[in-house]
Structure formats: C-alpha cells, structure tokens
Design a protein around this nucleic acid. Structure first.
Length: 656
DNA sequence: TTAGGGTTAG
C-alpha cells in the first residue's frame, strides 16, 4: 500500500513537471474533432515506421518543424504504435510522450494503459493501474476500450481486489453488456483463480462468443478442474460453436493433465476433421499432450511434422521425454536442438539438468553449469534447484553445496534436492542437519522432503529419529503419509532388524500397502535371512504384480543366502516357465560425455564383444583371446569404467 | 484503439 502511494506520488510529481515543460514547448492544441490532412500524413508516416528509433526521428521532425501537429491524436498514435508494432516496447519513451500531452483525453489514457498492460511484467501492469486511477482522479469517464486494458493489467499482476473494484466501476458505468469488457472480466477472475465468479458471469451473460467459452474452459483448466474444462468444451460443441486453435490449445492442455490418451486422440481427430491450422502453438500443445499421455512415438511424429518449431517445441520434447523416463532420448533431443542452432532457454536448461541427474551424467551437467555461468544466467529458482539436484544425485555433494550456498533464494525444492542427494549417498546425518535448518529459514517441508528425511534415517540406522519424523509429518505439517513414506518406515525398521515391528506397522497402515511397502519388507527379510516370512511376502507381491520378476529374483537370492540352493533353482525355473515381464532396470555410465546403458541380455552396445571378453577375464580363470581388436582399442580407463558398469548391472540382479 | 493459446524442479 505504502509502495503504491509512493509510486502515485512520484508519478504525480512527474506529471506536474511535464505539464510545465510542455507549456515551454508550447502549442499542444486541444483534441481535434476531425483529422486534418497534415495529421493524416503524419499518421501514415508513423504507420510505416519500423522501429522506435524511426518513430523518434518523426517525433523530433514534428517538434522542430511542425509544432502545431503535437496533437492528442498524433500522440495517441505514437503510443498505440509503441504498444502494438514492435517486439520490445520502450516504456520510458511512451511515458515521455504521454507527459508531453496536456489534459490527456480518455483516448490517450486508453493508449498508455494498453501499452503498460501488454507487458508481462507485473510492475508494468501495476503502472497501468496507476494511470487508470489517475484518469479517475481527473474526473474522466472510462469507456468500453478502457476496461479491457485495465482488466488485463489486473489479470497480469494478479490484482484481484483491484479487479473487483474495476468490476464495480463497470457496473456503475453501465458496461456490463459489452462483450469485450465481459470477456476480460471473466479472464481476470480466471487468472486470479476465482472460478465461481467466472462461471457466474458466463451463466448470467446473454451473448457468449467463442472467447467467452474458451475463457471459461481455461478457468477450469488453470484451477486443475480438467474434466470440467473438457466437459465445457463438449457443451460448446453441442451449442454449435466451432472451436478455433486457441480453444484447442486449452483443451489439449486439459487432456495432457488428465493423461487421457483416448480423449487426446479424439481431440486431435476433431482438429483434423475441422481442418484446423496446425500452427506452432497447436503443435506444441499436441506434443505436450502426447508425451504426458505416455505416447512418445505420436509426440515425435507431430514434432517431426511441425513446419515451424520454436524453443518451446524443443523444450516440450526434452522435458516430456524426461517425464517418461526416456532421459537418454531427452538428451539426444537437446543435442539435435543445438545442432539446429536453437538457443536454449531456462526451461531447456532445467530439462537437460533433470535428465543428467537421472542418468548420473556429471560431465554434461557440469557443461550445462558452465553454460549458465558463461551466459550470466542467474542460478536461482528453477535453475539453481536443478543444479543442486544434479550435483547431489550425481554424488558431487561439494559442488551441490557450492551452488546451494550461492543461492539467494532457497525454497523447499532446494532443500529437498540436497536432502535427498545426501540421503542417497549415505550422508544421512548431514541431510538431517539441513532438514532441521528449514524451519529457521521459514521453509515448510513437503511430502517429498519427508521421503528424503526418512531415507536419511533408514540409511543411517536412526530408528527413533525416523519414528519421530514420521509422526511429525502429519502432526506438525498436516502431511498425510503416502505409501512411499510407509515403505521408508518399513525399510527403516526392517534394516534395523525390527522385523516383527515392521510387520505390525504394515498391518496397522490406514491405506492399502503397495508393492513398494511389501518390497521393503522382503528386502529386510533378505538382510536378516527370514526365509519363511519372505515366502509369505513374495506370495503377496506376486499377486500384486504378477507380471514383474523382481520378487522372484529377490526370493531366489534369499534362498541362496540361506543355502537353500534347490529352492533357489526351483524358483528360477518357475520364473523362466512363467515368462514374466522383466524389470526394466538398467545400469548406465557416462564416458567422455556419452552414456553407455546396460540391460539384461542387451547386446546392442558397440563394444559388446570386448565387454564380454573382459567379463570372461573376471569370471573365468582361463584367459580368452587377447588380441581382440575392440579390446585393444579401448583405453585402460574406458575398460575399468565399463567394467564398473557391468558390476553395477550385476549388483541389480542383472547380467550384461 | 478493445478480449482468449504452448514448455520448467525434488
């Protein structure tokens, strides 16, 4: 409030200064009721200007040679052109023009409010509201053009109370039946999340057009009521209104969030049936929809067929593939993007770092970090968090802390990234220290932070600490534990040998235990050799996920550890006969910026032959052929790294 | 001179 009054004060000061200076420039004639030929010729010249620079040249020409043409009409034209014609609006120039107009009419105010409301920056939108307030103070009456601009500014700066005030003015001025005013009012409420008000306006308004329907759909979609949004779209079709591309982008976003591929394809079909123009916005929305619905092939097809792509198209593919777990593909997409000369933006960087974290690609992650530094991109917010996450997940805790400490604004995501990273790399104590720092910083943990905290306790054997945190999450932070949290607790108790307690814990769970929870108990059975209990748990897991082979393999390992070889062999045989779906686990290693992936039975690696020979060196005392060309080509370090990967694969129950 | 569109984290 104080800030605003200072702004108004500053602004009024500027205005009084401009009034006196404009009088020294003299000769601003009052608003012309008709356009004279000289004005018309200037307006034509202004229309042909290609930049603010050219505009300024015309401006100085008028001041020097045609001072009588410094009319409200001409100045309104100057401001309007600045607002609509160029990519970047020079707001200080627009302001300077405005201050040269004495007694600006409502048209001049409309033009300047429009100019400031077009900017995405909420400060500029706020300035637009200050102009609006000023025109009211001067006793001017807003018209049907003023309100759409003012309401847009309210929406942009999420200024709901100001928007409601403007709504009152609309009613008072009798403009409630203006379609543009109504639609922007609806949009203002939609952006501010007041979906009830959007619906009320829509229901009460007699003349809805496509924009009204689209705004209502978007209101629902923005609030996460995706099904409702789609329902409104079908109601709109029943009302015989033909949707356009903008409507489809919003509907596709609802399908994406619903993850409903059948619905998404139906909408795509609707667009084809209605011969819609597949512009870059529609293409991006389709790519996003297909990826969020899990169909990467169709997403790729749409992407490849897009005649025009922009950075958002690439970002949608990169982040969407990563969401599908196709991290390697996401990085390939990034490489392709670079080879096409498309400049990455913040979203690209976050997507790439996310893939690096999941693949353990520290080298590429470092390269992205260097890119961020080189381009003076602030490593705060999304990017800072993604960097912390990448370093922490890749095990470079020192670098993770360097980024973490260098961040000005840390939030729950920053803390969670480093807590999870520390917990994953066996530094539970440090993870818990950071967790205890959060309340002091005024940051509340969320559900994922608690997964990290419980993991930290589990890996450090801190049973009572874990119990304390588990009970605190609902008691203090009102976070209902999910199966992941119960699984962590079972893991914690199980690892500590408290098997009976872990069993009891599962029995008393208020939600149905899933495979994650039972899997944790089976893991505990393996550590502590509880064969009989393991058999019961395995039965449950097999019933839950008959298509998975994880439980069989773990059980077979439990039998082997207990020297029950016959049972182990019997189980492996049963597994083979059942033809179960193999757990798609894989191990990967980054070597000279390239990720090598290893899956069970997968022989697609270029150097498979050499790897098998080296594997033979380890498993067989009789040495295989030494003069294998591939083997000789591999450097010593490559060999040891690839072998580490093989070990990793084996540790996960997989054989290369 | 007026309104509605796509991508980002643990």
């Amino acid at each position: 409030m104080l800030n605003r009054s200072i702004k108004i004060h500053k602004f009024q000061k500027a205005m009084s200064f401009s009034n006196s200076s404009s009088s020294s420039l003299s000769l601003i004639i009052p608003h012309a009721s008709h356009v004279d030929p000289q004005e018309l010729s200037i307006i034509r010249r202004l229309d042909s200007c290609k930049s603010t620079r050219e505009l300024k040249q015309v401006h100085s020409y008028i001041i020097k040679t045609k001072p009588t043409l410094q009319t409200q009409l001409i100045y309104t034209k100057f401001i309007s052109i600045c607002a609509t014609s160029y990519n970047h609006t020079d707001l200080s120039y627009v302001n300077a023009i405005f201050t040269q107009v004495s007694n600006p009419s409502i048209s001049v105010y409309n033009a300047i409010i429009r100019c400031f409301s077009r900017c995405k920056n909420s400060n500029d939108s706020f300035t637009a509201l200050l102009f609006y307030r000023e025109l009211l103070v001067k006793g001017l009456v807003p018209d049907n053009y003023t309100y759409p601009f003012v309401l847009k500014a309210c929406a942009q700066s999420r200024a709901l109370s100001e928007g409601q005030e403007v709504h009152g003015h609309v009613v008072k001025n009798g403009l409630v039946l203006d379609l543009y005013v109504m639609n922007t009012l609806m949009r203002m409420y939609a952006v501010c999340g007041v979906i009830g008000a959007v619906r009320k306006l829509f229901d009460e308004y007699p003349q809805r057009d496509l924009v009204s329907w689209t705004t209502l759909i978007q209101g629902y979609v923005k609030m996460g009521f995706w099904k409702e949004g789609v329902k409104v779209f079908f109601e709109m079709c029943e009302a015989n209104l033909r949707a356009d591309e903008m409507t489809m982008v919003v509907v596709l976003s609802a399908c994406a969030n619903l993850g409903d591929l059948i619905l998404g394809r139906r909408i795509h079909g609707y667009m084809r049936d209605h011969n819609m123009n597949f512009d870059v916005f529609v293409g991006n929305a389709l790519v996003d929809m297909y990826l969020k619905c899990g169909d990467a092939d169709l997403a790729r097809k749409v992407f490849n067929e897009m005649p025009v792509k922009n950075v958002v198209s690439w970002n949608s593919m990169i982040s969407g593939l990563a969401q599908q777990g196709e991290f390697k593909e996401a990085l390939n997409m990034f490489r392709k993007m670079q080879s096409r000369g498309v400049k990455p933006d913040d979203v690209t960087i976050v997507g790439v770092l996310n893939s690096c974290s999941n693949l353990g690609m520290l080298e590429l992650g470092k390269w992205v970090h260097a890119y961020v530094d080189r381009n003076h991109i602030k490593a705060d917010g999304y990017i800072g968090n993604a960097l912390v996450d990448m370093y922490a997940k890749c095990g470079n805790i020192d670098e993770a802390f360097k980024v973490f400490n260098g961040m000005k604004c840390r939030d729950v995501y920053t803390y969670t990234a480093i807590i999870v990273g520390l917990a994953m790399h066996g530094q539970g104590g440090r993870a818990l220290d950071l967790f205890s720092e959060m309340p002091k910083m005024g940051i509340e943990p969320d559900s994922v932070t608690y997964v990290g905290v419980l993991m930290a306790c589990s890996h450090t054997g801190l049973v009572s600490e874990g119990r304390k945190h588990f009970s605190q999450m609902s008691r203090v932070y009102n976070l209902e534990p999910q199966t992941e949290h119960y699984g962590c607790m079972v893991d914690l108790l199980g690892r500590a040998g408290l098997i009976n307690e872990a069993e009891e814990f599962i029995k008393n769970m208020p939600i149905e235990p899933d495979a994650f929870v039972w899997g944790a108990l089976l893991g505990a059975c393996k550590i502590h050799g509880k064969v009989e209990l393991a058999e019961i748990v395995m039965d449950k897991l097999v019933k839950m996920e008959p298509e998975r082979d994880g439980a069989y393999i773990l059980m077979s390992n439990i039998y082997s550890s207990a020297n029950k070889w016959r049972d182990a062999i019997k189980l492996r045989k049963a597994l083979k006969e059942k033809n179960t779906k193999k757990t798609p686990g894989c191990s990967s290693i980054e070597l000279d910026g390239v990720v090598h992936e290893f899956r069970k039975g997968d022989k697609s690696h270029q150097k498979t032959k050499a790897i098998y020979i080296l594997l033979g060196e380890i498993t067989d005392s009789s040495w295989p052929v030494r003069d294998e060309q591939d083997l000789l080509e591999m450097s010593k370090s490559s060999r040891s790294l690839l072998l580490s990967s093989i070990h990793l694969a084996e540790a996960g129950g997989l054989v290369v």
